[in-house]
């Protein structure tokens, strides 16, 4: 069953067509990897479907209901949560407080919210930073905080914007495991933007390749990375370079 459907969304910034007639579908329980060179429009697509920006045209459906033009909190309430590429913690709070708020916002009971948050924090491997203020946390920890906070709102669809960026390879494996778990144990559908090709190859059921705001191609990970157009779009940059 299609859980997220995007039909021809476009967005221009002062004449620059950042997203141009992009369409794709994501089946429930699947993982879609989104790749493309810097500036391809990946983050903008997230902003459009998560309600942070209003598309100039096109529509977004979540579980059969149209959510085009909904505000971000309405989109989250409808079951789709995003993370931010540049981490956006609640800076005056500790890691635990950050995640607790997300649990509460997701409708969690007040009495159990902190315990639930603490469990989630352990699960993403943030345990030893649990009571630390977010100011001054290393990038790796902030990335995982983004993830924990997004998962805390119990989404059906999770939009992840480069959650592996900034992690050393040893730190990536547990996060990738967690993402797989989220799909298998929690039934979460994932759309993730990633430059690290190893992760894209390992996790994705299918891959969407963007270039200059347009969909270049889409398909299974192996097919897509063999596509000469994809290699061209990376301008000679080997798409496997990060792996």
């Amino acid at each position: 069953m299609t859980l997220l459907r995007v039909d021809g969304i476009s967005k221009s910034f002062q004449g620059l067509r950042a997203v141009d007639e992009v369409s794709f579908e994501v089946a429930e329980g699947s993982i879609l990897g989104v790749i493309g060179p810097n500036g391809a429009g990946k983050t903008t697509i997230f902003n459009l479907i998560a309600g942070a920006l209003r598309p100039d045209s096109g529509r977004v459906h979540l579980a059969g209901r149209e959510i085009t033009g909904h505000t971000p909190h309405q989109v989250t309430a409808a079951g789709m949560t995003r993370t931010f590429q540049l981490m956006r913690p609640f800076y005056s709070m500790t890691v635990l407080e950050n995640v607790t708020i997300a649990v509460l916002a997701g409708g969690g009971a007040k009495r159990t919210a902190r315990t639930a948050a603490a469990e989630l924090i352990d699960r993403v491997g943030l345990g030893r930073w649990r009571d630390a203020p977010t100011e001054g946390l290393p990038t790796a920890a902030l990335k995982r905080l983004e993830l924990a906070r997004a998962v805390a709102s119990k989404p059906r669809v999770l939009l992840l914007d480069e959650v592996l960026a900034g992690l050393v390879p040893a730190e990536r494996a547990p996060v990738m495991e967690l993402l797989e778990q989220l799909r298998t144990d929690d039934g979460v559908t994932l759309v993730f933007v990633e430059h690290i090709m190893a992760a894209v190859m390992r996790l994705s059921d299918s891959v969407l390749v963007l270039d200059l705001g347009r969909v270049l191609t889409t398909g299974a990970p192996e097919e897509v990375t063999r596509d000469p157009r994809v290699i061209e779009a990376y301008l000679g940059e080997d798409p496997h370079a990060h792996a």
Binding site: A50, G51, A52, T71, P72, H73, T76, A77, T81, R82, T83, F84, R88, P89, F90, Y91, S92, M93, E97, T100, I101, A102, L104, A105, G106, K110, R149, A150, A152, S153
Partner: peptide, 24 residues
């Protein structure tokens, strides 16, 4: 309260607060 916690979250980062589902 829930409301107070959400208010502080919205003060720290409005977009992040909205993204976790808070009607800012």
């Amino acid at each position: 309260s829930r409301a107070g916690q959400f208010t502080k979250a919205a003060r720290d980062d409005e977009d992040a607060a909205a993204a976790v589902g808070i009607p800012v």
